[in-house]
């Protein structure tokens, strides 16, 4: 019970420390306006990170996230431009995300291909598909998108939650329910914790694998929709290398890349840590974007080394018991 929340507590502590330190230099960070923007601007990363958290907990990885985000945007823009009903388009792209994810899950399990390689082909394929659809940025003009972009829920202190942030919070709640209150959720943890044992315990491996990647594909597609609506455009390079941010957010949120351990809610805090780092760096005009990458890399390193240490102390404690 306690041990399970340890990595998450570490994440929250890092987040709080960053938040307070940033706020001391730039008091505006404490305002609910900035906070609302943090959530709004990073909603899509967090959504993608939630999806990939399931995959990582199961012991896999999904590299196709960024390309899926790009493809969903381009597809939406083109179909809406062609006069399709935006709601229908939305449903279509989400179903596509789900099905493509399921396809990846299927070839991973059926053809026994490493997740890394299978989803790498997805990265290429979907990005290539973006360019097939359109080489340029296409604006998305639709009353539905304008309506969505004008959703605001006021926060105390003058800030507000955007539609994107609300969708993110809903997707998070859904993910928590799936992870912790369904048999499928427990199976994901079991699969990543000890695969051979999970098989012996009678777990449906193929179905679970397909569902995990389908879920991740679906979450990536939702992230793509939010991104496209935020920017009101479909751009074939959108979301490039975003899979790295999503994986980083998930790991910073306390998910172990070796599988079996992690909490979906960690993706929120991991994503917010990344968001805070970039906000602080942007507030400090003299620092540039390079710091974002370096700080992310450093935090990743620190978390991975700490995780290794936790794992080794964990197993030696069990032996010495």
């Amino acid at each position: 019970m306690r041990d399970r929340y340890l990595p998450l507590l570490a994440t929250i502590a890092v987040f709080a420390a960053l938040y307070i330190a940033g706020g001391m230099f730039y008091p505006r960070i404490f305002s609910s306006l900035v906070f609302g923007h943090l959530l709004a601007d990073n909603a899509f990363i967090i959504i993608a990170a939630i999806g990939v958290t399931f995959v990582i907990i199961s012991g896999g990885i999904d590299l196709s996230i960024g390309s899926m985000i790009g493809f969903v945007g381009v597809a939406m823009a083109s179909l809406i431009q062609a006069g399709w009903d935006p709601v229908l388009v939305l449903v279509l792209v989400l179903v596509f995300g789900l099905l493509y994810g399921a396809f990846q899950g299927f070839i991973i399990d059926f053809c026994d291909i490493q997740p890394f390689i299978a989803t790498l082909s997805g990265l290429f394929l979907l990005r290539g598909a973006c360019f097939m659809v359109n080489l340029n940025s296409t604006p998305i003009r639709s009353p539905f998108v304008s309506w969505f972009n004008n959703i605001y829920v006021d926060l105390p202190g003058g800030g507000f939650l955007t539609g994107g942030a609300l969708v993110m919070l809903f997707m998070l709640a859904l993910a928590i329910v799936i992870a912790h209150y369904t048999r499928f959720g427990t199976n994901v943890y079991a699969m990543g914790g000890d695969r051979p044992s999970a098989i012996l315990m009678g777990m449906p491996m193929r179905r679970t694998t397909v569902m995990i990647y389908a879920l991740a594909g679906f979450y990536s597609a939702v992230a793509g929709v939010i991104y496209a609506m935020n920017t009101s455009s479909g751009y074939p390079l959108a979301g490039n290398t975003l899979e790295l941010s999503a994986i980083a957010a998930s790991v910073l949120g306390g998910t172990m890349l070796t599988g079996g351990v992690g909490l979906v809610v960690g993706a929120l805090f991991g994503g917010m840590i990344l968001a805070l780092i970039s906000t602080i760096i942007i507030f400090n005009g003299s620092l540039n974007g390079a710091w974002i990458m370096i700080a992310t890399g450093f935090l990743l390193f620190a978390f991975i080394v700490i995780q290794r240490w936790i794992v080794s102390s964990f197993s030696s404690a069990a032996k010495a018991d």
Partner: peptide, 14 residues
């Protein structure tokens, strides 16, 4: 069994 899962979860899995 799955060492990373709680005893409850191990006992009730599936």
């Amino acid at each position: 069994l799955i060492p990373t899962l709680s005893v409850t979860k191990n006992l009730t899995l599936g």
